[in-house]
């Protein structure tokens, strides 16, 4: 393997990770690197899935945060996904 062509990350909308900052950091750290210097950062942003802590209703949320459960109006929603930072794939040559 001579070089890394691409790095694929999954950054959930509830992860607290700022995508622009992540991209900036990646570019800064890889510039001039033998293996990573020409690599592309591919970022996927999966929608968050939340579960109501009271009635258990499961809902999708493509925005920053769902305000409340549409069924019981409870506001404490537990993220089931979309709160993680995941290294998905590395493509090499």
């Amino acid at each position: 393997m001579e070089k890394v062509l691409s790095v694929t990350m999954e950054i959930g909308t509830l992860s607290g990770v700022v995508i622009d900052s992540f991209q900036f950091g990646f570019d800064t750290l890889t510039t001039g690197e033998r293996l990573l210097g020409e690599s592309n950062l591919i970022i996927r942003t999966p929608d968050a899935v939340c579960r109501c802590s009271d009635c258990g209703h499961v809902m999708m949320s493509s925005g920053i945060r769902t305000e409340q459960c549409p069924l019981c109006r409870n506001r404490l929603l537990i993220p089931e996904s979309g709160d993680d930072l995941v290294l998905r794939q590395v493509e090499m040559e």
Binding site: M1, D84, V86, L87, R88, Q89, E91
Partner: peptide, 26 residues
């Protein structure tokens, strides 16, 4: 490296793709 993963080899282009699926918060 971390966790289970799959390797895909692409014979024609000579590239290799590694599925990692490692949560950095985990």
């Amino acid at each position: 490296h971390s966790h289970s993963h799959g390797h895909h080899h692409n014979a024609t282009s000579g590239t290799r793709t590694v599925d990692v699926h490692a949560s950095l918060f985990a």
